[in-house]
């Protein structure tokens, strides 16, 4: 049965390949007045799929901005350079710099785990920021706000310390 099914599936594929060779004129001829509506329906479905993926992409970038800001603030609070933190957390310094500065960078699960361990954070709190899981709009808004308020200076101000503490608490409360 399975061999027969494979053979039938292969034959059906060959017939669909035949359809793919059809010119627009042949399609219009075969489909009468349906050509334009079919093209429109497919184009709308395709555009929606592309737009949905784009939304997901934007969300991951927002989360990564939050991750970069958080790691940088935690590192500065610990008074460590990127190289020192990378060495002590046993991660790549290049990857650490990418996490801090490039929202399009996709951190590895191991690095996320090592940083959680090093900074003694709630388990999975950085996983949320890595983009590996979906977050609701409220959490995303809070992360965007945090990333926008975090500043890149050597010493943490009182305001930044407060911001950091509040955000770590927020992550703890929103991590299962």
């Amino acid at each position: 049965m399975s061999k027969n099914h494979d053979s039938q599936a292969k034959r059906f594929r060959a017939l669909r390949d035949l359809l793919m060779e059809a010119s627009e004129e042949e399609l219009r001829d075969a489909l009468a007045g349906e050509f334009d509506s079919l093209a429109d329906r497919c184009q709308v479905a395709a555009k929606r799929a592309l737009a949905a993926q784009s939304d997901d992409f934007d969300q991951v970038r927002d989360l990564h901005r939050g991750l970069g800001a958080l790691i940088q603030l935690l590192r500065r609070r610990a008074k460590l350079s990127p190289e020192e933190l990378a060495k002590r957390a046993r991660i790549s310094s290049l990857e650490l710099r990418s996490i801090e500065s490039d929202p399009s960078f996709d951190p590895s699960p191991r690095t996320i785990y090592q940083l959680e361990q090093f900074f003694d954070l709630q388990p999975r709190s950085l996983v949320v920021l890595s983009g590996a899981v979906h977050v609701n709009e409220n959490v995303r808004d809070e992360i965007v706000r945090f990333a926008a308020n975090a500043k890149s200076v050597t010493t943490l101000s009182v305001g930044e310390k407060q911001l950091l503490n509040e955000f770590v608490r927020f992550l703890r409360d929103h991590t299962d």
């Binding site: 793919m20 489909l31 050509f35 334009d36 497919c42 395709a46």
Partner: peptide, 20 residues
């Protein structure tokens, strides 16, 4: 992938729809 899908012509959209 995004570029290739955006570049599909109406005939290709119709073929995809007919197959679906």
């Amino acid at each position: 992938v995004r570029t290739a899908i955006n570049a599909l012509d109406p005939a290709s959209y119709v073929k995809l729809m007919v197959i679906a």
